[in-house]
Structures are given as structure tokens and as C-alpha cells.
């Protein structure tokens, strides 16, 4: 506001510019906005409006009695939020449990995906015979459709005729008795492994791309100065990858924390308690229990949590990179 006013003031105070030049300038200023108008409209339609509707839903009692006529749903105020955040109540307790499971899942999957991706990218940084084949091979899980990949895992995890039990029990005799992988506490391990398999190639791809930008000369200079491989990684590779890492970890975090497909395909609508991730927990409460108001309240809480995490993370990252 103030800038445009001061500018217009300037233009009236200053020498009058030649007339023909003015119009194109106005158009020129409008062009970028015009160009993004379609994108903004679609974004509003596809993302923002449903999000606002979701936020509205979280403040009403949208249960089975009102889903056919939303406008009559009684206003619930913060009631849905109170139930969700009352951790001594049964629903709050199960939300907290689901949140803890999701946090553990995210830390393990993101951490290991980064370690695997980084290791593979480092190994494949220097060219050698067969590098192309290995790169392609490593990217296969990422190229496969998610559902097809995870369904294959669910077949391997079957107790009686699954590949995993066949190898562990029948061939290697490591386990006594056949193990359940999709039931009980093992379900968490099963889900984590499948998710890790799916997400590490993405870390690998991003880090590999990042490494292409590091000049060979820097490494050469470092090795002339007597830096070993570990020192090179620590003082050249990792610092150069900082911007890539910043984005990569954030994306992996958001994807993994929001993960719905992995538990849904492995376990169906209601996963065992040890694999009850937040997204599917919310889905359960909305669709299986027909309580969309409560489901929306939990979704809004999840949204707020992820926003805060992202904000704090970006703030820390910027501060650190500025300091560096």
C-alpha cells in the first residue's frame, strides 16, 4: 500500500514521463500476475477451498445424522478439539498413541532413507564399470507404482506362504515357528521396511543430483593436500549438499508423516495398533465411525503440527546457512 502510494506520489512530483511509455509499463506490471491467475484459481479450487471446508467441518458435529444435510450440523465449538486433545479420554489416548507411532516411524524411515541414499550416492559418485546399471537398479522401487510395490511386500509378509518366512524359517532356520509379520508388534517393522524400501531411492536420486554440482577439482585439490576419503566427505561433499539436504529431509519428513498408502495397502482399513499411523487413524475415525467433524479436527491438528515443524525447521536451516 504505502509503496504504491509513495511511488505514485513520486511520479506526480517528478518529471512527467513520455506518454507512450506508460501503458506498456502498466501492462508489464500486470503480466506476471495475469500469468499466474489460472494457477492461483486452480490452487484455490483444488487445495484451499477443501482445506477451508475441512476447517469448518472441524467446528461442527458432522456425524451420521447430518452428513446428508451439512448445513444443519450443530455447531460444536472447540468440542471436537477438546475430545481429540483430552489424552486421558479414550479417543485422545488413541490419537496420542497413533502420533507416537507415527513419530517413531518417521524418524526411522527418514533417518535410514537418508543414510542409505547418501551411502549409495557416495559409492556411485566416481565413475566405474556398471555404474549406470546400478543407478537404474537402485531407482526401481521409486519407479514402481506405490500400490504394486507394497502389495508385493504384503505377499512376502504372509505367514504361511510368504517369501520372508520361507527364507527365515524354512531355509535359514533363524526363527522357530512361522512368524506373523502383518499382525501384532511385528507389523511396525514390516511397515517400516516397506516404506524405507520405497523412500530411500528418492533420497539417493536427490543426493546424486546434488553431487553432480560439486567440482572434481575441489576433490583433486583436497587429495593433493592430503585429505583422505572421510575428510573429503566431511569437508567437501556434506557442506556442498547442505541446500539439497535441507529440502530433501523436509520432503521426506512430510511424506512419511502423512503416509497413508503403506499401512492401507499392507493392513487394510484398520491396521494393528502397532502400525496405526496418523493419516489412517483419521480416516478410520471419519469413514469407519462416520464422525467427520472429529476426523476434520484431527486433520487440522495434524496440519498445524506439520506447519509448525516446517516453520521451525526452515527457520533453523536459514539461520544456520546464514551463519555458515
Amino acid at each position: 500500500m504505502t509503496t504504491t502510494r509513495s511511488r505514485s506520489k513520486q511520479s506526480t512530483d517528478g518529471p512527467v514521463p513520455p506518454k507512450p511509455a506508460r501503458r506498456p509499463r502498466g501492462w508489464g506490471r500486470a503480466t506476471p500476475y495475469l500469468l499466474i491467475v489460472p494457477a492461483v484459481l486452480l490452487e484455490l479450487l483444488i487445495h484451499i477451498v477443501p482445506m477451508l471446508v475441512g476447517i469448518w467441518m472441524s467446528f461442527v458435529q458432522l456425524t451420521q445424522f447430518f452428513i446428508a444435510n451439512w448445513s444443519q450440523a450443530p455447531y460444536a465449538g472447540l468440542g471436537n478439539y477438546r475430545v481429540a486433545l483430552n489424552f486421558s479420554g479414550p479417543l485422545g489416548q488413541s490419537l496420542l498413541h497413533s502420533f507416537e507411532i507415527t513419530a517413531a516411524y518417521t524418524v526411522i524411515v527418514v533417518g535410514l532413507a537418508w543414510v542409505f541414499g547418501m551411502s549409495a550416492a557416495l559409492v556411485l559418485q566416481r565413475s566405474f564399470r556398471g555404474r549406470g546399471i546400478l543407478r537404474t537398479l537402485f531407482l526401481v522401487p521409486y519407479a514402481l507404482p506405490i500400490y504394486a510395490g507394497i502389495m508385493t511386500w504384503s505377499f512376502m509378509y504372509q505367514r504361511d506362504n510368504g517369501l520372508l518366512n520361507h527364507v527365515l524359517h524354512d531355509d535359514l532356520h533363524l526363527t522357530d515357528g512361522t512368524t506373523f509379520w502383518l499382525v501384532g508388534n511385528n507389523a511396525f517393522i514390516a511397515m517400516t521396511v516397506a516404506a524405507l524400501w520405497r523412500s530411500w531411492p528418492f533420497a539417493f536420486l536427490m543426493l546424486m543430483a546434488g553431487m553432480q554440482n560439486i567440482s572434481e577439482e575441489v576433490y583433486d585439490a583436497a587429495s593433493v593436500d592430503g585429505a583422505g576419503i572421510w575428510k573429503q566427505i566431511r569437508f567437501i561433499t556434506l557442506p556442498s549438499l547442505r541446500p539439497v539436504n535441507g529440502v530433501l529431509v523436509l520432503m521426506l519428513f512430510l511424506w512419511t508423516f502423512n503416509d497413508f498408502n503403506t499401512p492401507f495397502v499392507l493392513f487394510g482399513q484398520t491396521p494393528p495398533p502397532s502400525a496405526d499411523l496418523v493419516s489412517i487413524h483419521i480416516y478410520d475415525n471419519s469413514f469407519v465411525n462416520w464422525n467427520f467433524g472429529f476426523g476434520s479436527a484431527m486433520s487440522v491438528l495434524l496440519l498445524l503440527f506439520l506447519l509448525v515443524c516446517t516453520g521451525v525447521y526452515l527457520l533453523l536451516l536459514n539461520r544456520r546457512s546464514r551463519r555458515a
Binding site: 465411525n289 464422525n291 472429529f294
Partner: peptide
Amino acid sequence: QAAQDKMASAG
């Protein structure tokens, strides 16, 4: 009991 509590607090 947990199932019953869930139903009760879900309203």
C-alpha cells in the same frame, strides 16, 4: 470397555 468408551465419547 475401550470400544464402548470410544463410542460414548465419539457422540
